[in-house]
Nucleic acid binder design. Structure first.
Lengths: 204, 204
DNA sequence: AGAATAAAAGTGAACGTTCGTTCATTTTTA
DNA sequence: TAAAAATGAACGAACGTTCACTTTTATTCT
């Protein structure tokens, strides 16, 4: 038989097809609204076959969260962002993360589904993986008291991530509304500016 | 018969009971996971009776969005917030909104359900109501070029709202995770500070 | 190597449940 | 006394999962 080590086994290819189909459908319709039949059809196998690879529907979602979540691509970009000053670092990290996220416009929905349908049940496993990588970077940043206002590393992480979340959440919320028409084009740049400098002018 | 004009008619009381029950259940379980039977039971009437008041399940959700959404209470607090300086205004508005939101911890879920299950379909009606009230206030704010950096009124609104969203979204995401244990107590104050002054120290 | 064979994966009908909605009927309201 | 509201059984559809069965894959033995 063919033993090309670069080729995925048939088993693995089936798993990937199931996860890919489920990922797309969850993004399009949400978790509850997506049926196992739809997943099977898009993955190109029969309904019952799914259960040879996953114990059930929620396990597919968990698998997606664990090894298909966009943070896998984004995290390295942030952690490895360069910059002589913290401002440079934040701007580079934000820009690179945004570029990657721009390719995957539905990334936030995974988080919303997680919150709405599972009350954040699966997040802790992500955190366990993210934190050891990200915390040292932001600890070094927070220590630069000359450049940064006094904000602890944990809140620095949270607020940095929150900037992306809030940008995309408000984008999804206002899409198609009157506010969307009034919105400037490069709004994310302003979000980064506000994160860095605030809305107030310096008082000096 | 009793014609006390302050009393709700029986019809109205039934509608309120249905909306209240549905609101609670949607918050607890999400829209799709909540059944009409659960709504009927908690509202204290029979299954079929709901359809004498609402055409279907989604119309209940729409009614909740329209006249039970927390922004009804919060919007006036923000619009009527006082403050000699923009900073005072923002801090007062943020504090009062947060107090109100603290009483209604599930407020954000309504938005998430809206995004996850309806792709933001019902937001435009909210915007049509909010914008005329809120835009003038933020236009006046944005015009104070001495105090505020150059940010248009529309982005000023969006980023101000986004501050709350990002705070609560990250709170829901990290709850129960390792990051939550490391989080300082009064994190929202820091979010407001970052919104006002940014994370960077002034360069002067 | 090639045949035998046990394990894994694929199939789609069937199962039991639950869903949103409808309906004929009764009770309450105006 | 006519309209509105309440009732819960019934309907058809869809759901996640299981099942008996066939096909494919991987391993063992000659």
């Amino acid at each position: 038989m063919d033993t090309d080590p670069t080729a995925l086994t048939k088993k693995e290819r089936a798993r990937q097809a199931i996860e890919q189909a489920a990922y797309e459908l969850f993004m399009e319709q949400g978790f509850t609204a997506t049926s196992m039949r739809q997943i099977a059809e898009r993955a190109g196998l029969a309904l019952g076959g799914i259960y040879n690879h996953y114990a059930g529907k929620e396990e597919i979602f968990r698998a997606i969260i664990l090894d298909r979540h966009p943070y896998k691509q984004i995290l390295p970009l942030v952690v490895n962002a360069k910059g002589k000053t913290p401002e440079e670092f934040f701007r580079n990290a934000a820009r690179e993360a945004l570029n990657e996220l721009g390719q995957r416009p539905d990334f936030l929905k995974l988080m919303f589904i997680e919150v709405v349908e599972f009350n954040g049940r699966h997040i802790s496993v992500i955190m366990r993986e993210i934190l050891p990588q990200v915390l040292p970077v932001f600890e070094q940043l927070a220590a630069r008291r000359k450049s940064l206002r006094q904000i602890g590393p944990v809140l620095l992480i949270r607020s940095f991530i929150a900037m992306f979340f809030s940008y995309y959440l408000t984008e999804m919320l206002i899409q198609g509304s009157a506010l969307a028409k009034l919105m400037p084009k490069n709004s994310f740049d302003t979000f980064v500016d506000i994160y860095l400098h605030g809305v107030l002018k310096e008082t000096s």
